[in-house]
């Protein structure tokens, strides 16, 4: 049953977005996130929305997969919206009991709603179109400058990729241990929350012991295959930028400039009106 968990949430299909270099996608996602926080007018959000729709269409990933991430933050989203709606000071539209709904509050609530939605959908495009191993490679390449301050970038990436490799192995093991403990009358479905948490201890202990043993074995096996850290290693699958990546970077630049231009224009207008 635990084995059914798919690794990450990669959606396997062929599209221009899937084909992009992971570095491009990670940077693109970062640009998008920054733009959502930096700009907050109606027109910039319209551009952000248009950009999002374009990327979704290009990625060929069904929209319901993108919205899946929304489930996780649903409660958070509702609380944020209500908080902004009722607790922002300003010109009251209407009020009841102790709540005051203001124009500013309404605007802020709508803004927050779209900001969070775009954020979640935008980042999920990254994970939906990039395999975990590609993602690690991309992160390794982008973290490369940190090497100057002695951060062991290659080793961190190796750790991440080994962790990914062993997730299915360890889930299978958990499954096995659970069944073994069930055969000895362990009760994992107790209604009492405290009891239920306690019942997981006999799973965690053998799981940790076996994980340590595996780690030890793997370290020996890696050493036997001449692994000596990141220095002097070559890459079997080096990252290479293709034409599509340059188009993507150009689009990012245009997007950034457009959003910035609109913000400047609007602020200029407000300034003129005040003057």
């Amino acid at each position: 049953m635990l084995r059914d968990i798919t690794l990450g949430q990669y959606y396997n299909t062929k599209s221009v977005i899937h084909n992009l270099d992971p570095r491009t996608k990670i940077l693109g996602t970062m640009v998008y996130m920054v733009s959502l926080f930096a700009f907050n007018s109606f027109w910039t959000y319209l551009i952000a929305f248009a950009a999002l729709v374009t990327v979704i269409v290009l990625s060929k990933v069904p929209v319901r997969f993108m919205l899946r991430g929304m489930k996780a933050i649903f409660l958070f989203l509702i609380i944020t919206v209500l908080y902004n709606l009722f607790l922002t000071q300003g010109d009251t539209i209407f009020s009841f009991w102790i709540f005051n709904v203001t124009i500013q509050g309404l605007k802020q609530a709508i803004l927050m709603f779209f900001r969070l939605t775009f954020l979640v959908v935008g980042t999920s495009i990254l994970t939906l179109t990039t395999t975990p191993s590609n993602l690690t490679d991309g992160l390794e390449a982008l973290m490369y400058p940190l090497k100057l301050v002695k951060v062991p970038v290659a080793e961190i990436a190796m750790m991440m990729s080994i962790a990914l490799r062993f997730i299915p192995v360890l889930t299978e093991e958990t499954d096995k241990i659970m069944r073994a403990q069930k055969a000895r009358c362990a009760d994992f479905d107790s209604k009492n929350l405290f009891k239920r948490i306690k019942s997981y201890v006999p799973i965690l202990v053998p799981l940790f012991i076996s994980a340590f043993r595996r780690a030890n074995d793997l370290a020996t096996a890696m050493e036997a295959r001449a692994y000596r850290g990141g220095d002097g290693r070559t890459k079997m699958k080096p990252l290479k930028y293709k034409a599509g990546d340059w188009i993507a970077y150009t689009s990012m630049l245009i997007y950034g400039i457009a959003a910035l231009a609109i913000t400047v224009l609007i602020n200029f207008q407000i300034f003129m009106l005040k003057a």
């Binding site: 191993s133 990729s161 490799r165 074995d217 096996a221 079997m236 699958k237």
Partner: peptide, 26 residues
């Protein structure tokens, strides 16, 4: 133990692991 000595997430990546360590060209 075959599970505890495979490093790569894909078969070919694992087979290439030793060569990468030796610094052989792509």
């Amino acid at each position: 133990n075959p599970d505890n000595q495979i490093v790569g997430q894909v078969v070919e990546e694992d087979v290439g692991f030793g060569c990468e360590n030796l610094g052989i060209k792509t």
